[in-house]
Write a protein that binds this DNA or RNA. Sequence first.
RNA 1: GGAGAGAUGGGUGAGUGGCUGAAACCAGCAGUUUGCUAAACUGCCGUACUGGAAACGGUACCGGGGGUUCGAAUCCCCCUCUCUCCGCCA
Length: 424
Amino acid sequence: MLQLTVLREQTDFVVAALNKKNYKNAAQEVAALLELDQQRRQVQNEHDELQSRANSIAKEIGALMKSGEREKAESLKSETSELKQRTKTLAEQLSAIEDEIQKALYKLPNLPHESVPAGRTAEDNEVVLQHGEIPTLHAGALPHWELIKQYDIIDFDLGNKITGAGFPVYKKQGARLQRALINFFLDEAMKAGYMEVQPPILINEASGYGTGQLPDKEGQMYHATADNLYLIPTAEVPITNIYRDEIVPVDKLPIKNAGYTPCFRREAGSWGADVRGLNRLHQFDKVEIVQISLPEKSYEILEEMSSYIQSLLQKLELPYRVLRLCGGDMGFTSALTYDMEVYSTAQGRWLEVSSCSNFETYQANRLKLRYKTESGKTQLLHTLNGSALALPRIVAAILENNQTPDGINMPKVLHPYLGFEKIG
RNA sequence: GGAGAGAUGGGUGAGUGGCUGAAACCAGCAGUUUGCUAAACUGCCGUACUGGAAACGGUACCGGGGGUUCGAAUCCCCCUCUCUCCGCCA
């Protein structure tokens, strides 16, 4: 959530930034918000003043009652009734205005960082770098959805039977590969100084609001209505919400957490050839890294996180590229996002396997996640996170890129985790 | 799921209608004393909104929401959560 003071003090800048994110009617909405803010303060001033008078009269009555001057007290009482009525009306107005402001603020996305390229779609994303050689496959090489059948390691039909489309069953070396990747990613995160956490995978409404999934994006999450809980779409939600309503001591910063969770996405309305196989699932596994940092350090940390994620891809020997997302393609809550994509050779396309973002104060403002400056002022921290990594597309790329006519070679770093070197 | 008890500031915990934004203690911060450490002493020590250049004010907040009252941490109603006992159970 954007801060009202920023809208107030840097209105033109905010409007320009919203425009860059292709937000419609930015100028009008911001102007309307400022108007509401103006009203709010006026009403609040009036209200506070009346309340203040009511408070002092109440005190007076108390004193009179004590000294036994009942009649004077009674006459004062009658004086307050009109005051009370007016205060009540103002209080109602005030909370109506506050609600409206809140709603309007929730609607506004985060402002993109100055380095974010302008643009509307994925076409406009900027390729920051590309790394690794794209392998040449043997004749008759298969896409991963054929390979998993051939070696019987991931079973979509079974998942269909048990749950539905997009919930595969991993079997044998396929299951082992999942476990190996999770352990590898977590071990690497520990080495990089992250603290491992294992959060709940169901979250309440407050947590959904904290990181920006609610309101308006409940459609992407599975909702357990009996208890009003949501299955997490990413570990970002529970892990970041650990720090909701916190004032973090400066010497604890930056906070670096990593956690493995399954993730659940309804992905309503997405079908087609490019979502075949492991490309898009309703349930998948992911190790997420989250950092909470001082505002002045957050972009340095974003780079650090980006290199860390790249180091994983390098160790897995996967060709990848890094994109800086354009204003139109980035997430609602993000100020700057890098996407990491691996090349899936049999499909001949890049697959997103990580998204690494700086949210600046946008989430922190909703979370009330703050620190105290040296002068004692409470200020919002910055939150960041990245996938490190999401498994399914990594698996797809490993299977496709490393296939040979007589089996699929596993990346060396995984051998100790797998207990085998080759599938088939 | 049943029965009971409870939810107060960073922590412990007092407070059953006005003198309580909230005692006391602990932790924390600043200082005095001290050869150093320790101890002792003094002061400070919640959050948000808001007025003000500032000094300094105003309002709200004692789990959340509503109500009674001139006045609510304190009384009433609803909700949530925690604890204890019972039941069930990985």
